[in-house]
Nucleic acid binder design. Structure first.
Length: 590
DNA sequence: GCCATTCTATACCATACAAG
DNA sequence: CTTGTATGGTATAGAATGGC
């Protein structure tokens, strides 16, 4: 009897402990998965923060580079003034949910792996291996995907057809992607099972309805909903060629709203999934010209100026040109090169002179007839020059692979240039082009091209130059500081971007940078914007409004404002004093 | 003058080795 | 066993130079 009771107790105990253990394990697994997802999301956010996309519209088109990039992508409103946009997820919507952000799927010039730097001119040479990787990067999907277009879209193809993707992406230009999933008739998923995995491992095909902008498409997952959120994420990413960082949201029927998907179990077959793009930080800067800086029509300011405060604008405009520009030398314009296009997907050999083209035409005919190759030094020289110029318009430092593709395209276009001895007919052209690019850079360097000068060996002794700056700082006359800081810009950029040194380390290594004049100069080196001048200009622009606000302020703070502003009532106050008063009031006001 | 080659400097990586 | 350092190999860059 006792044994029987003991056995029952043991069974009872074992059963409950096991159940409890399973529940605990399941809960822990769920928590770990959610932490993992959150971790990835935060990592992607961090990546967004530390790798912002800097868009520098073309300025002052230099006569020497034939860059053809259009800058008309930005809205008109952003073109006439300094714009600093920091778009952070959640910033627009504290609820974190539907962040309807623009998805720029127009990627006809974009290549995988180059997205975040797509608009940044390639000035300092990059890691060649990374370039190679970016060239060869391909997209694979771990889930068998078949995309079917709805009747309003005629094209139908499989996921491995890159052309379809690109065309699809071309058309999909904006808005979020809304995916509504539904199961086919044969769905056998049992809802509400304790283990998430049991709901994920179905092999029945799942058809997802995908709405992109104004189109709707079907996405068939022949293997069902993927096992992990990563796979689903990757599937969506690869299928729709979404290169931006994004997170998935699922529709919670209880709340009638979307929430972040932390686990694949959140994805219900009959629910909806929304793709929410995490925006890149876009630093849009429009360099100002001297005439814009202070010749701007300040009178455009909304007329809120109180009669008690004579407008300071004109007098300020007259004397507000700081000497900030004097800190910036010719070397500082290393970021001013015209925006480059990305390396083209298909190499188009540029047209040569009419005489050469004619000669090549005849030679090509001859080559096709009897295999005679063209051997003409003049033609060879012209081709090399033209192709070097062509490649330089994309990057001063093309990789071996890129050069090879150009050489390949050359021989393909002009078969008479095939090299009889080489296995592919163009390897020699590749080497010649490589040499040519080196010589081409040397030539441009001698002409003072900053893009290639910043990589010159003359600037390859950063430590010595940095120590020179430290020595210069100790001097009474710091005449060379600006020149030294200019020449070491690339090294500081390396410290910040590549080495990611802390502010303290930067301050220790480059104390001169924290001088007011050098802050201004460095800002201009990076953004082409004269920081202090621009700030003062905008301050002057808003002074009437600010004064009106301060004047209208009630209470003790208002009294303090009015006391500060009393000096301005007399009129004829110097511009600097006006600014000082306004800034004081502003600080107090805030 | 241009192309191709060589030289030199530098950075990066892998490996070996010594010290703790 | 781990960590730090030295060393050698490789790759790549610019500069210099020779040959046509």
């Amino acid at each position: 009897m006792a044994n029987e009771r003991l056995e029952r107790f043991t069974n009872f105990f074992t059963e409950h402990i096991t159940t409890l253990a399973m529940e605990v394990f399941s809960e822990v697994q769920s928590i770990v998965e959610s932490y993992d997802e959150e971790n990835k999301r935060l990592r992607s956010l961090l990546h967004t923060v530390i790798s912002p996309e800097i868009k520098l519209p073309r300025i002052d088109a230099s006569p020497y580079v034939q860059a053809t990039t259009s800058i008309s992508e930005q809205p008109e409103d952003f073109k006439n003034s300094f714009e600093f946009e920091l778009s952070q997820p959640g910033a627009k919507n504290p609820k974190e949910e539907p962040i309807e952000l623009e998805i720029n799927c127009d990627e006809h010039q974009q290549q995988p792996g180059e997205l975040h730097t797509s608009n940044v001119p390639s000035i300092v040479k990059e890691d060649p291996e990374q370039e190679e990787e970016s060239m060869d990067m391909t997209h694979t999907s771990s889930v068998n995907i078949r995309v079917e277009f709805c009747p309003d879209n005629s094209a139908t193809s499989s996921a491995d057809e890159g052309e379809k993707h690109s065309s699809m992406s071309d058309e999909a230009s904006t808005s979020s992607v809304l995916i509504q999933s539904r199961m086919g008739a044969s769905d056998s998923i049992v809802m509400g099972q304790p283990s998430p995995r049991t709901t994920k491992t179905t092999m029945d095909p799942v058809v997802l309805k995908v709405i992109i902008d104004h189109r709707s498409e079907k996405l068939t997952l022949s293997s069902g909903i993927p096992d992990t959120l990563d796979q689903l994420h990757k599937t969506v990413k690869d299928t729709f060629q979404i290169y931006e960082e994004f997170v998935l949201h699922y529709f919670d029927e209880e709340f009638g709203d979307f929430f972040t998907v932390h686990s694949i179990s959140d994805v219900k077959p009959t629910g909806s999934i929304k793709v929410v793009i995490i925006p890149s930080i876009v630093l849009s800067l429009t360099p100002e010209t001297d005439d814009v800086t202070y010749a701007g029509n300040v009178s455009d300011t909304p007329s809120v100026t109180s009669d008690k405060f004579p407008s300071q604008s004109s007098s300020i405009a007259a004397d507000s040109q700081s000497d900030g520009t004097s800190f910036v030398s010719a070397q500082d314009i290393i970021l001013l090169s015209p925006e480059r296009e990305l390396w083209p997907k298909y190499i188009e050999i540029p047209l040569l002179s009419v005489a050469t083209e004619t000669l090549l035409l005849i030679a090509n005919t001859q080559f096709l007839k009897d295999g005679t190759v063209l051997n003409n030094n003049r033609v060879r020289s012209e081709i090399l020059e033209k192709l070097a110029d062509y490649m330089y318009s994309y990057t001063p430092y093309p990789t071996g692979l890129q050069i090879g593709r150009v050489a390949e395209a050359l021989v393909k276009k002009h078969p008479c240039l095939t090299e009889p001895g080489s296995h592919n007919g163009w390897i020699g052209w590749m080497y010649s082009l490589k040499y040519k690019m080196g010589n081409y850079r040397t030539k441009l360097r001698s002409l003072g091209f900053p893009e290639v000068m910043c990589n010159s060996l003359r600037n390859k002794r950063p430590e010595q130059q940095r120590l020179n700056i430290l020595g210069e700082l100790k001097k009474q006359e710091r005449t060379n500081i600006n020149q030294l800081m200019s020449s070491t810009f690339a090294h500081r950029r390396r410290d910040v971007v590549s080495l990611q040194l802390s502010v303290k380390e930067i301050k220790d290594r480059w104390p001169a940078l924290f001088d007011v004049s050098q802050v201004d100069a460095e800002f201009k080196r990076i953004t082409t914007v004269n920081l202090e001048a621009k700030f003062m200009h905008m301050l002057d622009h808003y002074i009437p409004k600010l004064l009106a606000i301060f004047q209208a302020k009630k209470g003790a703070a208002g009294e303090r404002h009015r006391t500060e502003m009393s000096i301005l009532r007399k009129g004829g106050t110097p511009a600097e004093k006006t600014r000082e008063v306004v800034i004081r009031c502003l600080i107090d006001h805030l």
